[in-house]
């Protein structure tokens, strides 16, 4: 057997490992891009622990059973779903200061912000890139007309059962494939300019 210079062997293995690493990174990016978890899937911690279960959970389950549109007021009127303003939270929370210790602490955070005239810096759960425009009201109108349901009942189509989430997380990928699949299913337009402009 011919003796091979060990330096060459080392070089070959280094290059080989390097190549493997690069290929690995490439595959990682590829998989991440196509199959990666969306931003909000990890259910980020929010500055104020806002339990959707308490606010919009059904009354049987100990919630208040509020409509989604009670707080997300403009979701059926405009493109943006809108996070309610602090002022709007305070409509109720002027009176409701919490029963449990945990609730009292969280509500007091809100009261402090309101008194200071400061906004709440929520962590984003659902995010679409800048070059995409999603129009909430058009979707809500379509589904509620088609199925004869109220606006608030449409939300779960994309957002899942938020009413049962203590911490909101994203349940659908909400990537372009997801959008286009649905648009095809309901023969909605799939022209690029519908979302990109």
């Amino acid at each position: 057997m011919r003796k091979v210079n060990p330096i060459i062997l080392i070089a070959i293995s280094v290059v080989g490992f390097g190549g493997l690493l690069i290929a690995g990174v490439a595959v990682f990016f590829l998989f991440n891009a196509w199959f990666g978890l969306p931003v909000g899937a990890q259910a980020p911690d929010q500055p104020i622990d806002f339990p959707h279960t308490v606010h919009s959970g059904s009354i049987e389950n100990g919630g208040l059973g509020l409509d989604c549109t009670f707080c997300h007021r403009n979701v059926a009127e405009g493109a943006a779903a809108t996070v309610p303003s602090v002022q709007q939270c305070m409509f109720c929370h002027k009176q409701i200061t919490g029963t449990s210790d945990k609730a009292k602490i969280e509500i007091s955070k809100l009261t402090e912000l309101s008194e200071a005239g400061q906004p709440v810096n929520w962590k984003r759960v659902h995010r679409l890139p800048d070059h995409v425009e999603f129009v909430h009201d058009a979707h809500i109108r379509y589904f509620s007309e088609m199925n004869g349901i109220s606006a608030s009942e449409v939300c779960s189509t994309c957002h899942g059962d938020v009413a049962s989430m203590v911490k909101v997380k994203q349940v659908r990928a909400l990537k372009m494939g997801d959008c286009v699949d649905c648009h095809r299913k309901y023969s909605a337009p799939t022209d690029c300019t519908i979302c990109h402009r």
Binding site: A79, D130, R197
Partner: peptide, 28 residues
């Protein structure tokens, strides 16, 4: 309107955002 980043072509769109807004408003 999307802010185009470096390395992208752009051109007149006939203000497609206004066309879409007009259509959506009419629909609304």
């Amino acid at each position: 309107v999307t802010v185009r980043s470096r390395g992208v072509m752009e051109k007149c769109t006939f203000c497609v955002q206004r066309i879409r807004r007009g259509e959506l408003d009419a629909d609304r």
